[in-house]
């Protein structure tokens, strides 16, 4: 059995420093057997996109609680497409008003996880997305 481990980049974009959620998710995904890279705080979308390329990740998880998601989410998606990484699964967790969710999904964010989501639901979502996707040789 040499199943390739799912590689995840957990990132905190923007100026906010509330990293409780990002750290818990990083640990939960690691405990679920994924390889997790945590960027640390205050990453611009540019920094996140290049880290994702360098680390060749399958998934990017953004933690945003500051209300800047409508700026930061679409910007990251644009950069990923420019780099030919439009197939990377991008999810957001945080404080996101329901009214903003359709627009975020439209730019290609795969899922939005709101406060109160069990970590297992996030693990399951990522596994289902990555196993369903054609493997990146």
């Amino acid at each position: 059995m040499s199943e390739k481990r799912i590689r995840v980049l957990i990132a905190k974009p923007g100026l906010d420093g509330h990293d409780r959620g990002a750290k818990i998710i990083a640990r939960a995904l690691r405990d679920a057997g994924m390889e997790v890279i945590y960027t640390g705080l205050r990453q611009t979308p540019e920094m996140i996109a290049s880290a994702a390329a360098q680390e060749d990740v399958d998934v990017i998880g953004l933690s945003i609680l500051s209300g800047a998601h409508n700026t930061l989410g679409p910007r990251l998606m644009e950069l990923l497409r420019e780099k030919g990484m439009g197939d990377v699964c991008v999810v957001i967790g945080g404080i996101i008003p329901e009214a903003d969710i359709p627009a975020l999904k439209k730019v290609g964010i795969a899922e939005i996880f709101l406060p109160g989501t069990p970590t297992q639901a996030i693990v399951d979502f990522i596994r289902s997305r990555i196993s369903a996707a054609p493997s990146k040789a």
Binding site: G14, L15, R42, S66, G67, N70, T71, L72
Partner: peptide, 20 residues
């Protein structure tokens, strides 16, 4: 957040966070 981090509202890193 820009104010908390010592950035003016028109700083590049403040984009998307002003008044939020």
């Amino acid at each position: 957040l820009p104010t908390l981090m010592g950035y003016d509202s028109d700083h590049a890193l403040s984009e998307g966070e002003v008044g939020k």
